[in-house]
Nucleic acid binder design. Structure first.
Lengths: 190, 190
DNA sequence: AATCGTATAGTAGGATCCGACTAATAGAGG
DNA sequence: CCTCTATTAGTCGGATCCTACTATACGATT
């Protein structure tokens, strides 16, 4: 009972791009960055090439040509296969329907918040809260510059809205918890 | 500029446990599960032993004895070192202060929500919403049975509250997005 | 008393991931 | 027109992680 053959979500991003047109790996990465998809996918040149190879091995994409400009390394252009197209949609469907447990680092740290002591805990949370606020602003700016100006359909940036929503929630929890610590509403056992 | 020597947050969990008393690896894992920390840390027997070894290699913990019960494999009991204690607190502080980009699978899928088409997207989101609601209820039940009954100090389960808060936020976003899709408030380009 | 399921305890080997590196070209600045 | 930096493009080796597996003990059931 082998799980899904390729599980890295970067693969999902690549499949999605190749639905538009064939590309070579480096172009996939830069296109994703241009479109601000680097918040939703971890784009790392190391794993990029591994992932492309793995997709090709499973027949979800295939090389269609190789080009060469000057003395630069040869670039292999890949295209989506029919198999890949089907897997793409099925995979998304599954990812949406079934929540999977993630283990964010913040949660790990919060588990031992007590170890910092009241003062330092409140301090650290306050610093985080500030950074979260700035991150939210940055994201709002991106949304304003794209969807806000009507240049990009909202659906194409919907995951950015989703990320913003969850950042805002984290921000709210953080502020509220600081208040409870400082206000004494949260007991602090030894 | 060396990165942090051990980066897996499971290591953080282990350090935290060993602050109470020395334990052998299997006991660490089962204690964490008992305390419902398996929502905040990914506990996997494979990585457990790797992580313990890595912590020992860096001198954050050290073997203090080996015991044997019957013909079972020998168990090595580890204790926290002073170095480990310091790193523990410093690590938590850093994790709290500095948000790091996580890349939840859901966000990846939402990035290509368009590929499902209106109907199917709303459907899939609705299924997720249902599961999220059930998860929230489960968590509330755990909180009621522990903190609610006064048997466990609230600070010891604070990360569960945090996780609940973020699940609720995701839940809300999901419901709201379903409504926008079904109500036509969200444009659906080809 | 033989069998079944579950808890205890850990190992081995491969898949995956990633940081650090190489190397060529284009364009900016002096 | 020469150097410097940024961008383009990709490789490589090792660290990490996890799945699947081994093996014993113990209580309950037939």
């Amino acid at each position: 009972m082998t799980r899904r053959k390729v599980s890295n979500t970067l693969a999902l991003a690549l499949l999605g791009l190749l639905r538009e047109r064939p590309m070579h790996p480096y172009e996939m990465a830069s296109t994703l960055r241009e479109r601000h998809k680097d918040g939703s996918f971890k784009i790392n040149s190391g794993s990029l090439y591994d992932t492309v190879e793995s997709l090709a091995r499973h027949g979800w994409i295939e090389p269609v040509s190789t080009e060469r400009a000057g003395k630069r390394p040869e670039r292999t252009v890949y295209a989506l296969t029919e198999l890949g197209e089907g897997e793409f949609v099925g995979w998304i469907d599954e990812l949406i329907r079934t929540p999977v447990a993630e283990h964010p680092k913040f949660l790990a740290a919060v588990s031992y918040l007590g170890a910092l002591g009241r003062e330092r805990a409140a301090d650290a949370l306050a610093e985080r809260a500030g950074r979260l606020r700035r991150q939210c602003e940055d994201i709002r700016a991106v949304l304003a510059a794209t969807v806000g100006s009507g240049r990009v359909p909202r659906l194409f940036m919907i995951e950015v809205e989703c990320a913003l929503h969850s950042l805002e929630a984290e921000s709210a929890w953080t502020e509220q918890t600081i208040a409870e610590i400082r206000g004494g509403g949260l007991e602090w056992p030894a």
